[in-house]
C-alpha cells in the first residue's frame, strides 16, 4: 500500500490537501503517481485563477495516460508550483513534498470537512479505489 500521510485530507480522485493556516496546499497522492507511472507533463493554472471543488484545475500526463487534476476545495489559487512543468518527474519522486501543485485560499470553509481522512482514503484504496 502506498504511503498515505496521516495529517492530510484526500479526494476520491487521489488528490491530497494540506491545511496551512487559512490556506490549502494541493498535490496528488503516492498511489496516483504510482498508477500513472512516469509523469512527463504537468499543466497548472495561473495564480489568481479560481478553483472549484471537484472540478479540474489542471492535467497530468504520464508516458501512457492523461489524467485531470481535481480541486479538493474551492477558492482563489494563490500559489502555483511553477517549477513542476520543467521537472514533472518530481511528482513521482516526492508526491507529498516537492511535487505539490498549488495553494488555494478557500472560499467555502465547509468543503474541508467533506474531504476524506487518511483512514477513509486508505479504506477507499483497499476497496479498489473506484
Amino acid at each position: 500500500m502506498p504511503h498515505v500521510p496521516k495529517e492530510l485530507r484526500y479526494t476520491r480522485d487521489h488528490e491530497w490537501a494540506k491545511r496551512e493556516d487559512d490556506r490549502v496546499r494541493v498535490g496528488i497522492t503516492a498511489y496516483a503517481a504510482e498508477q500513472l507511472g512516469d509523469v512527463v507533463f504537468v499543466e497548472l493554472p495561473k495564480v489568481g485563477a479560481t478553483a472549484t471543488a471537484k472540478k479540474p484545475f489542471g492535467v497530468v500526463e504520464s508516458v501512457k495516460a492523461v489524467s485531470d487534476l481535481f480541486a479538493p476545495v474551492s477558492g482563489e489559487i494563490v500559489e502555483v508550483n511553477t517549477g513542476l512543468p520543467q521537472a514533472p518527474e518530481t511528482v513521482n519522486a516526492d508526491p507529498y513534498g516537492r511535487g505539490w501543485m498549488l495553494v488555494i485560499a478557500p472560499s467555502h470553509k465547509a468543503e474541508w470537512a467533506q474531504l476524506l481522512t487518511a483512514e477513509q482514503y486508505e479504506e477507499f484504496l483497499a476497496q479498489g479505489a473506484h
Binding site: 507511472g37 512516469d38 512527463v40 504520464s62 508516458v63 501512457k64 518527474e89 513521482n92
Partner: peptide, 8 residues
C-alpha cells in the same frame, strides 16, 4: 506494460 518504470 512496465517493470521498473517506462523511462528507466
Amino acid at each position: 506494460v512496465q517493470y521498473a518504470g517506462i523511462i528507466e
